[in-house]
Design a protein around this nucleic acid. Structure first.
Lengths: 193, 193, 193, 193
DNA sequence: ACATTCGGGACCACCCGTTCCT
DNA sequence: AGGAACGGGTGGTCCCGAATGT
């Protein structure tokens, strides 16, 4: 009962968050309309303002946090999947490439797309992206440290890896091909593994 | 004569293109309104659809090509600035970081921002971004080949370098700090130079 | 018991009524939102439709009656404050002007503002305003009769006095100055006193 | 040609202004929606933003000025219709009463209704109302001076007359009867004429 | 050839007054 | 008595033609 109620309570809020995340990563922030989110979510429009009095920005924030955490877990899982660093990195990159390919080159990084167009306008969204990236960097850094890197080198290499992933995702989306991500993976594994 | 005419013709056309480029790289495509472009350009609104009957998309296309070429020249200049690969790459990355810092972390890559939010919607803009990236990759690949890389390796490493630059630019904008770009540069120079 | 209960029941009900009255006389009916009333009252929003199942209109009705009675008592007090008609009228007008001035020219007649914008739409609010004005006119008429006016003349003069007060209040609010009300007072006292 | 063009140009702008004036005097500012104005005017909504970039407020301003001038001319005409002051005032008040009655007690003073609900919120609308009233007062004052009043007395009596008219209009609308205006007229004529 | 006014819907994010169910 | 949820509607602005100068 309490269970069903909780699910009932959260159901439309979560539907909003999920729909927002899906649309944001494909179209970005400005191109995604509230009405589009409502339609995609299937939830009633009137509830949106109740769950997110802060409007579109708050909704985007929630969606970014949600997908950010989900992706963070996927990253951690890939990094922990092997004791060999090269193998772990390879699996991470492969996972990224597979996900992109499976979505028809539509689902890029949900953080990057929004961050680039709102970094100058909305500090809240920018800060959210910053924290998410920080968390991902942390995971990468730990994995690199575990593989024998010194702290400073690990921090720099984590930045390189994340940057290369994000950039590779961009190039792959634009070219509608997994090739750039595969190239990045091969080089990264070759140079770091 | 043809010269003067071209300049005369171009004066308000170019004002549109420049204003569009400036706004696109800061806010992206959807967030940039035509009226905002007109206001920023200082040119008369009525002229817009004379010069760009294709509307907003055509205007964005022209702006992306314009800034893409300009940046391509800057990349080529940096890459040719030293016979040492590491030094050349270092200068390229430093230039990128300096440009970002000087703009108050507002001017990222004009191609990336637009590409991410329109890749799924507008094939024209996506293709334009693709060609621009291809040209940049070509320049990188040639430089790597000149430094002794085999063709295949050079192609992959060019992808890694461009991806790392784009990703580094993203991380640096989001963090409002040149640090991610510096880290990327150091590692890239260390691993490839 | 019934007393205490009434008070207990009334606490949040009265908060609604008072908040509504305050906002209505400053902004009118349509510009005053229910959520604004709830915020101003400090009472819980969910209780509103318990106390006022008729919604906004019923709430406005209660507020108009409340302030109407309060003002009616003030009018009666002023009219009874002197045996000299001119003096009594002068005090009434002065009180009106002082109240307006003290509120920073924000608190006009709570009835007039709402009546003008709803007279054509809501018969309930119109009728409420009518009754309130009727009561005020009655008080004025009695005072004029007591001062020696014949019944018919007293009725007409009461209408003139009330109209002049309402109109003076309007002019004074618009000019942000007590002067129109003072002018009305001087002439009224001069002509009737 | 220039003539037809001017008419053509103004046609939809004027339609907006007229529709706005009509609705404002019946429902006030907040209760009148832009879409309602658009529907009433018959003009396309997209043109509204072109003619009135300042939005609803600018539109209301234009409507108030328009109706204010029109009414000012009617007032001047009534005041100049007779050399006898009482007769002139009587005609003015009769005209007001007739207009209200003919509209089914819907068309009150377009300035008063808007002024009361926006005086505290919009200084632009308040100032517009102030200027309009000032112009009307000026006309009344001149007529009273011409009838032999001293300047100071004329100014005060003009305020009384305008206040009484506005207040009488309010009472008559609320009661759905011309009687309050007739009473005001009789007393005004009796006391001043 | 080039510029501008004016017009035209669709759509935006936001918030309203109301009701449901506890 | 009350927190949560609901659709519909708000004012505003979008990107874009069509008609009209210069």
């Amino acid at each position: 009962m309490a269970r069903a109620q909780e699910l009932g309570r959260g159901s439309s809020r979560d539907a909003f968050v999920r729909a927002t995340g899906k649309l944001l990563r494909r179209q970005g922030y400005a191109a995604t309309g509230l009405s589009e989110i409502v339609a995609e979510s299937g939830a009633p429009k009137g509830s949106l303002y109740f769950h997110f009095p802060g409007g579109k920005e708050q909704l985007a924030l929630a969606a970014m946090q949600d997908t950010g955490e989900r992706l963070g877990m996927a990253i951690a899982a890939a990094l922990g999947s092997s004791e060999d660093l090269g193998e772990a990195l390879g699996r991470l990159l492969d996972g990224v490439a597979d996900g992109l390919e499976r979505s028809g080159y539509r689902d890029g990084c949900p953080i990057a797309t929004v961050a680039l167009e709102t970094a100058a306008d909305s500090d809240a969204l920018r800060a959210c992206a910053e924290q998410t990236f920080e968390a991902w960097l942390e995971a990468l850094e730990q994995r690199l440290t575990a593989a024998g890197c010194e702290r400073e080198v690990a921090a720099r290499r984590a930045a390189l890896v994340l940057a290369a992933i994000e950039g590779g995702l961009l190039l792959a989306r634009v070219r509608r091909s997994p090739e750039p991500l595969r190239a990045v993976r091969d080089e990264l594994v070759d140079l770091l593994g």
